[in-house]
């Protein structure tokens, strides 16, 4: 069964490293070129996303491929997320405690508000930003290398969609493992913040461990962000890797773009989901 949209070549217009094309002159021409390239890039990204979803539902994979990617994305990110989220949790609680203490010397709700903030937004967003740097860069570099070494062309010659072969296993693994890692990272940040609150502000653990402000809206928004970020990072990174051109320089550019665009995707999705969540579950 053929995918709904299966371009023969990857979206090569998304890159700005095409030195052979004469650069247009004038502000209007530059703006027009930027707009056209943006539309083409978005169309390419949309195409990759659509084919990813399609092959996720219809495609077949070798045994262990998704598991291997889950190990790469999930288990190998545990230490990285433990360190980063631990420090972020400590810093957030320390700074917010300092600011709150300037207003009123009452930090009994520090844990409750921090937990709500983590579940609703920060745990998913910050962990996904970290994953975008590690996982997104890895996916883009791996796929980009295969593109510049013409392995992807070989796949096409064999009648295999590179999205099905390269992106979908990472997509499936990321959707699952990003959620798991976000839960784990949120817990690490929360308990690291609790230790900071206890050590710096004398907030007792019984007081800090307060889930009273959590409601179904917070958890729903947090879970939606987990799924959205877990899907966005491999799609955007895979698209960037498939867009790589040239040699190692192109792979580097694709890797950088993967980090930038994945982070940007996380931020934009955060804005959208938070807005929808605010309408559906007002604070």
């Amino acid at each position: 069964m053929a995918p709904p949209v299966a371009p023969a070549t990857p979206p090569d217009d998304a890159l700005d490293g095409d030195a052979e094309r004469p650069r247009p002159r004038g502000l209007a021409a530059d703006t027009g070129q930027l707009l056209i390239e943006g539309v083409r890039a978005f169309r390419g990204l949309f195409d990759v996303a659509l084919r990813t979803v399609y092959w996720s539902l219809k495609g077949r994979r070798e045994k262990g491929v998704v598991l291997e990617q889950a190990f790469e994305i999930g288990n190998k990110s545990v230490f990285f997320l433990t360190v980063t989220q631990g420090f972020i949790g400590m810093i957030l609680v320390f700074q917010s405690g300092l600011q709150a203490r300037r207003v009123v010397p009452d930090l009994t709700m520090l844990g409750a508000t921090f937990l709500e903030l983590l579940v609703r937004d920060l745990a998913a967003t910050l962990a996904s930003m970290m994953l975008a740097t590690r996982v997104g860069a890895g996916i883009a570099a791996e796929i980009g290398s295969m593109v510049v070494t013409e392995q992807v062309d070989a796949l096409r010659m064999c009648g295999v969609d590179p999205v099905d072969w390269l992106v979908v296993p990472r997509f499936l693994a990321s959707v699952v493992m990003t959620g798991v890692l976000i839960f784990y990272a949120g817990a690490i940040a929360y308990f690291a913040g609790g230790a900071t609150a206890w050590a710096v502000f004398d907030v007792q653990p019984q007081t800090y461990l307060n889930a009273r402000l959590l409601d179904i809206g917070d958890v729903s928004i947090g879970l939606a962000k987990c799924v959205a970020y877990g899907a966005a990072i491999p799609i955007v990174s895979g698209w960037c890797g498939l867009s790589a051109r040239g040699g190692s320089e192109g792979v580097g550019i694709a890797t950088t773009q993967a980090v930038v665009f994945s982070s940007l995707a996380v931020i934009i999705l955060n804005l959208v989901i938070s807005g929808v969540g605010f309408v559906l579950f007002p604070v």
């Binding site: 598991l67 889950a70 190990f71 999930g74 493992m177 839960f183 959590l214 409601d215």
Partner: peptide, 23 residues
């Protein structure tokens, strides 16, 4: 690898369940 991935997934599921229970 299967064991490690499974353990991590179980940790995530346990954390989610704990969150729901606490909430």
């Amino acid at each position: 690898i299967e064991v490690k991935v499974g353990l991590l997934v179980l940790v995530g599921v346990a954390l989610l369940a704990a969150l729901v229970l606490v909430m």
